[in-house]
């Protein structure tokens, strides 16, 4: 599935946030997990919990005793349970748009990212505005654009969130 699961996760998280859901789930893949963890570091989601088809009892991020072990039989039903944030009756995650898609992967180098982070358009990537952030898939894992610039690494532009 690769990038497609990211695109689907973007749409789902945006829809769930606009529907004012407190907890939602996306398919449990390594790609999705790294993305939501990066979003968690950026403060866009409140919690990330690995679980099954049912919502976890305590979405704290640590697997509880009641959670069943992941086996090859039940691995297809595993979900990532993502807690959504709201502030002043407004969702913290307002907009989440995929940049790369399976038919067009968009990459950005460090000099390009520096300009994009300052608000200038580079190629396919529009400049960041107030409150916007960009998530990249790099060889150091999935990073926010400012983390990537701190590590001086470019990569595949996944999505922009505001």
């Amino acid at each position: 599935m690769g990038i497609l699961s990211i695109v689907n996760a973007c749409s789902h998280l945006q829809n769930a946030s606009r529907a004012r859901f407190g907890l939602t789930s996306i398919p449990s893949t390594k790609y999705n997990l790294r993305l939501v963890l990066a979003m968690h570091r950026a403060g866009l989601v409140s919690s990330v919990t690995r679980g099954g088809p049912r919502p976890p009892e305590e979405p704290s991020g640590t697997p509880s005793e009641a959670d069943e072990a992941v086996t090859s039989a039940n691995v297809a039903t595993r979900r990532l349970w993502v807690g959504l944030k709201y502030w002043n009756n407004e969702p913290v995650l307002r907009k989440m748009t995929p940049v790369s898609k399976p038919s067009r992967l968009v990459t950005a180098t460090v000099p390009e990212l520096e300009k994009v982070a300052r608000g200038f358009h580079i190629g396919q990537v529009k400049g960041l505005t107030l409150g916007e952030t960009l998530f990249l898939s790099t060889d150091r894992g999935i990073l926010e654009v400012r983390e990537a610039l701190a590590r001086k690494t470019g990569g595949l532009v996944l999505c922009r969130v505001s």
């Binding site: 950026a42 403060g43 944030k85 709201y86 502030w87 002043n88 913290v92 107030l130 409150g131």
Partner: peptide
């Protein structure tokens, strides 16, 4: 910006 920052902690 202050509201956004507070929302993201």
């Amino acid at each position: 910006p202050d509201e956004i920052a507070m929302g993201r902690g």
